[in-house]
Design a protein around this nucleic acid. Sequence first.
DNA 1: TTGTATGCGTTATCAT
DNA 2: ATGATAACGCATACAA
Lengths: 350, 350
Amino acid sequence: MADRKRKKAAQRATIADVANMAGVSKTTISRYLSGQYDSIAENTRRRIDEAVKALKYRPSRMARGLKQDRSYLIGFVMADLANPFSTAILRGVEDVCRKHGYNLMVCNTDNDPVREKEYIFMLQSHRIEGLIINSTGKNNEFLRELAEYHTPVVLVDRKVPELEFDMVGTDNIQAMEQAMAFLLDQGYDSIAFFTEPIYQVSSRMERLQAFRDITARNASRASGEVYETDLRSPGQLEEHLDHFLTRVSGRFRSILAGNGVISLKIINILQQKGVRIPEDVAFIGFDDTEWAPVVASGITTVAQLTDDIGVIAMESVLRRINGDQSAARIVQLPAKLIVRNSTPPVSRRA
Amino acid sequence: MADRKRKKAAQRATIADVANMAGVSKTTISRYLSGQYDSIAENTRRRIDEAVKALKYRPSRMARGLKQDRSYLIGFVMADLANPFSTAILRGVEDVCRKHGYNLMVCNTDNDPVREKEYIFMLQSHRIEGLIINSTGKNNEFLRELAEYHTPVVLVDRKVPELEFDMVGTDNIQAMEQAMAFLLDQGYDSIAFFTEPIYQVSSRMERLQAFRDITARNASRASGEVYETDLRSPGQLEEHLDHFLTRVSGRFRSILAGNGVISLKIINILQQKGVRIPEDVAFIGFDDTEWAPVVASGITTVAQLTDDIGVIAMESVLRRINGDQSAARIVQLPAKLIVRNSTPPVSRRA
DNA sequence: TTGTATGCGTTATCAT
DNA sequence: ATGATAACGCATACAA
């Protein structure tokens, strides 16, 4: 009975401890751990069972990972965890991870490329087996590095043209077309599109471009106005709203918000100013947030399939992990217009 | 020049590769990695710099961790990631983690003890260095196991009487007292408390108990009614609301919601029924959700310091990691009543 | 200032 | 059905 090394405190049991207690070799324990029960005698297996329980043995994923070159870890890097859109995706990702025995490492970059880079480095050091990211687009070099070493990367929400990775997001053209067609059909002749700064964010670019295309095609029916607003700049959104409400002509005015965050801010300011939805201005929000049904007797929204985005992104990672070498896939999920009371036909208003 | 082993694909560089390229031993590289620059000659250091860059070397945290008995990993286990309360805490935790070089493993148990147990096992295998959890309370045995091996566990939101761990949450007594005192001062003589099922959830228990105590003390001024509602049971909440609105006497009725999730559901149903806030019933919500300002001309809420809960929880973990052996601390942060328009004085209503 | 040798806890290879 | 041994990538004790 070899006596264990003395350390100053309770140490976790190792495979060797289990082997000793069960009276077999480490190899047999290892077989047991990987479920090769066929090659283990019934009663040795029982003895191992007992030893594992008695010692509260938990195999070390670090040791196992080092040997097998695996980590059982997936990285999840978001530009803005404060946005419910991000956490909705997170839930989808987490669920699939759990079902497949992976753990999720969650990182919030706050849209800062430096933080993003630091996180990518840390995740590389942890040897993550897959990465799901809505990227600032400023660290393509390091994302490519992951790909070189066969770590699948899946982009969500934001495309990065230089990167040939799988991408999962919303079909922003179709989404905008639904929203705009509906507003036009309802008879609105003035539509303002409010978006957070475009930068290089593809989803915002696509929505903006779609807005421009659609207004151009419908120039005879309605006028379009674009407001690109930095929400961190105090007063800017209010200024833009003032401009639209007082300086832009149009009998029947409507607002289309580019995402859930700016939706809420707009509604807040409108309420403060006593501008009524939909009596004074109609409103459609992007993202079907939890509060959409209860604000202003119900806000019409363009719902993204956030949960599905997360699920599909993680499934794409798994497919690549399992050896799929096919060309990068771009999945653009349809958006669904959810009509509530913020967008009545103008006939009922005029 | 020893030739590297041939594997079928691009492998990450190891410390040995860097050592070879820089023409020094692995030990020197190791020193370099741990920042012992004093004991390295200027120009060897430069050569190492170059080699690291050229090889895109990323030290393996698994190997390092195995040797040092560290993982650089913190576990974060939540009963309900869908609740914005959870993700608010997550942001606080994540921020502190990042600043200290830790990575966060996020787990969603969906209030299921079995899932919780599986996650705790996985986290144990990953040798997490700390755990932040709002627990179902059904896996105390395994949480204690973590403590035995000196892994600090910090409870958030929910206490577990059997577990002597640090705990961070809201002072629910003070929170309820603020809300109730305000309702009473405004002149409401009937208060209904709506809560999700109490089970063993300490935060819900505390709020309920406080409600009972306060209504008992103020029996002459107002009557209190408790509704414990399982939101998964269809129709139950509506039934309870119906009961309160039609069967319970009281000239000036008010509702106090036990958390943000049930707040939203209640408001939704009230709106569907055409019950106006605050004209027909006053309303205070627990948790100052993002939508509180814009619903029903502004909902009065009891704000929890969610971000601080996360920050303090993670700081507690760090303090324990750094050797603090003092007795378990319970931190109960004050709640702040945010008065909006859902709770006017009854004099303005009568 | 630098290097050699050993071991962390596991799996894989090759035996028996 | 079971075991002995080497190796994964790094840090550490000890030398030089």
